[in-house]
Design a protein around this nucleic acid. Structure first.
Lengths: 341, 341
DNA sequence: CAAAATACTTTACGCGCGCTAAATTATAAC
DNA sequence: GTTATAATTTAGCGCGCGTAAAGTATTTTG
C-alpha cells in the first residue's frame, strides 16, 4: 500500500494504465470491462486505495444509489429491527441506505422527507407515523420519489404497501384465548397512533362475535409514543374501575401489554396461566422485548422477515419503474405462546 | 408557489434579482448578507422553492456539514435514545447527522467507517463496540477525521471521550443496597462487550471491600448482544447452583438485569422489597425499559443529557480544531429507586 | 486471414456550485 | 456632501466525474 494519495480518477487511471472513462465504467459495473483490464484496475486498487468522490459521482448521475429508510420511532426496538433488516437488504443490492426516525413527531417526519428530496434518492422505504402524518406532504413526496410504505398504511394513497393482516392477528389470538379460558377483553389507546390499531379492534370484535360472545373494548386515554407509560397509568385506572369483564386481556400491541403488565403488578394482580394467576395478558407484534417480560408475553408474531423482504423487493421494482399489480401485500401472524396467557 | 422548477442557483439568482455569489453567500450563512437582500432572496424562496444541489455544494466545500453518529447496536433503545439526543443537537447546529449501527458486528463497524470516509464528514460521534472493535481501524479513522468517542472507551487512543463514571455507579448502588439490606452479589458476563463492565466490577469490589465485606462476583457464559437471553439462561443456572451468596444481586447493566428478572421468575423467586420477596435485583444504566419491568428495576441512571451534550460540544470543538485539554469527561450517575431493590 | 464485432482510448463538454479578485455600488459615519 | 466602509456584481476558474463521439486496438468469427 503506497501512501501517495490519489486525488482523482484521472490520476488513478494514469497509475493503473487505463483510460479514465474505462475506469469510470469499471466503478459503475466491474463486469462491464474486459477481464484483463479489470485485473489491472484491481491491482492498482490494491496498491493505492482510491475511491471515487461520491459527490462528484452523484452530481452527474441522474439517479443516485441512495435509499432512505424512514421509521416513526427508532427508539422502539421493533422498528429498529425492521430497519436493520431492510438496511442489510439494500446494502446487499448495492445501494446506500440511510436511516431516519421521525421520533414520533409529524413535523420531523416532513422534515425528513424534505431533506430526502435533496439527497435525490433512488427510492424510499417508509413506515409512516400514521394518523398524525401529514398526508398531503407524504402524498406529494410519493409522487416525486419511488416509495414503498410498510407497517402502517395511509389509506387510499395509491402507494405500494407491505404490512400485516391485523384482523387475522386478532382472530388468531382471540381464538386461542377463548379455547383455553375466558374470552379476552380488548385494551387499546383511545386515539391510537396508526390505523393498525383500528383493524385489530375490528378483528377482535368480529372474532368474538363469531363465537357468539360479547366484545369488551377498553379504551384508555393518552396520546403519543410513550405507550408503556400510557398503558401503565390507564391500565391501573381500568383495573381499579373493574373495567375488565373477563379475566383475560388482549392488548392492541406488545408495548401496551408491557405497560399493562406493570399496571397488573402494581395492582397486585398475578398474571399468567398458573394456579395463582388471576388474569391473562397478551399482546400483538412479538416485540423484541416481549419474551423478557415477567411473565413472558404471549403474542402474535409479525413476519418481520417477509415484510422487510417484500418491502425492499417492491421498492426495487418501483425504482426500475415496474408497476406491480399487487399494490398491497399483507402477511399473517403466528401465535407465540408464552406464560402470560 | 410557482411550479416552474428552478434548475440551479444561476436561475434562482436571476429570479430573485440578486447575483449568484451573493445568493451562494446567503445559503452559506443568511446573516452574512444585508437585511434587504436577505428579504429579497427569501421572498423568491417562498415563491419558487429552490434548494442548492447538495452534491455540487459538498464537492466544492473543503468540509461538508455531515456528521456521522455511530452506535454499536441501535436495536438497544439505550443507544437509540443517545443517538436521538445527539442527532437533534447536530441538526440544531446546522449539521446533517447520519445514523449508523454496527449491529453488534465488528466488521460492520469497520465498513461504516469506510463508508464515512467517502462522505467526508466534518466529524464523527462514535460509541464503539468495545472489546471487539478493530482498534487499528478506529485509530486510523480518528487520525483522519475529527472524532469523539462516547459510552465505551478505547483506552489509550488519545481520542476525546465522554462517558460515565462507572466505578461511581457501582459505589452508589452498593452503598444503597448495603444500607437497606444484604450487600449485593455482582452478576456480569464473563466476556463483556465493553470496558465499562470491567470498571463496574472493579467499582463493585472496591465498594464492598470498603465496607469490610467480601465481594461475590458471578460471571456467566455467553457472548454478543443478546444480553437479556444470556442473562436469562446464565442467571437460571447460577440460581440453580446457589451461586448467589446473598439475597441481593447487582447486575452489571440493565439489560442483564432484565434477563435476570426473567430467570428469577422462571425459578419462582419473587423479586423485590416486599415481605414475600426473596431476592433484590438491581441494574445500572436506567435503560428506557427498566421502569417497565416487573417489578420496576432499581438502577443507576446514566446522565444521557450531559453525555450527549458534552460529546457534541467536544466534537464541535474538535471540528474547529480546538484542542480540548479535558480530553476525557466522566459523568456521575443518579440512584433510581424502584421496587426491585 | 480478412472482416466484423467488441473493447478501449482520446477528446471534449457539461453538471452545479465554491471561491476569488477586481470593479462597482450602496450604506453609514462624520 | 464627502469619506470610509461594507455589500454586491462581474467574470471566470476549478472541483471530480459522467458521458458522448470518433478513432484505434483487440478479439472473435467464419
Amino acid at each position: 500500500m503506497s501512501d501517495a494519495k490519489i486525488k482523482n480518477m484521472e490520476e488513478f487511471a494514469a497509475i493503473s494504465g487505463i483510460s479514465r472513462p474505462t475506469v469510470s465504467k469499471y466503478f459503475h459495473d466491474p463486469d462491464s470491462v474486459r477481464a484483463s483490464t479489470r485485473e489491472r484496475i484491481e491491482k492498482a486498487l490494491q496498491d493505492h486505495d482510491y475511491r471515487p468522490n461520491i459527490y462528484a459521482v452523484n452530481q452527474n448521475r441522474k439517479l443516485t444509489k441512495n435509499i432512505g429508510i424512514v421509521v416513526p420511532y427508532l427508539a422502539d426496538p421493533f422498528f429498529a429491527e425492521l430497519a436493520r433488516n431492510a438496511e442489510q437488504r439494500c446494502i446487499d443490492a448495492g445501494f446506500r441506505p440511510t436511516l431516519y426516525s421521525a421520533h414520533g413527531n409529524p413535523s420531523v417526519e416532513v422534515e425528513i422527507l424534505e431533506s430526502l428530496r435533496v439527497l435525490k434518492p433512488a427510492g424510499v422505504l417508509m413506515a409512516p407515523l400514521g394518523r398524525s402524518s401529514d398526508r398531503a406532504a407524504v402524498e406529494k413526496f410519493c409522487a416525486d420519489v419511488p416509495t414503498v410504505l410498510f407497517d402502517s398504511e395511509l389509506p387510499d394513497l395509491g402507494v405500494p404497501y407491505i404490512g400485516s393482516d391485523n384482523a387475522q392477528f386478532a382472530l388468531l389470538i382471540v381464538d386461542y384465548l377463548s379455547r383455553t379460558g375466558e374470552p379476552p377483553c380488548f385494551l387499546e389507546m383511545k386515539y391510537p397512533a396508526n390505523p393498525n390499531a383500528n383493524k385489530r379492534r375490528q378483528g377482535y370484535i368480529k372474532a368474538v362475535e363469531a363465537l357468539g360472545l360479547t366484545p369488551h373494548v377498553v379504551s384508555i386515554e393518552g396520546e403519543g409514543w410513550s405507550i408503556e407509560e400510557i398503558a401503565r397509568i390507564g391500565g391501573a385506572k381500568a383495573i381499579a374501575k373493574g373495567a375488565f369483564a373477563t379475566r383475560s386481556v388482549l392488548c392492541s400491541n406488545d408495548r401496551l401489554a408491557i405497560g399493562f403488565l406493570v399496571a397488573c403488578y402494581e395492582s397486585n394482580l398475578t398474571v399468567g396461566i398458573g394456579d395463582d394467576a388471576v388474569i391473562r395478558v397478551s399482546g400483538m407484534d412479538d416485540h423484541p422485548f416481549s419474551r423478557f417480560t415477567c411473565p413472558p408475553l404471549t403474542t402474535v408474531a409479525q413476519d418481520y422477515e417477509s415484510i422487510s423482504r417484500h418491502a425492499v423487493e417492491a421498492l426495487f421494482g418501483a425504482i426500475e419503474g415496474i408497476e406491480n399489480p399487487q399494490n398491497r401485500i399483507l402477511f399473517e401472524g403466528k401465535l407465540i405462546m408464552r406464560q402470560s396467557a
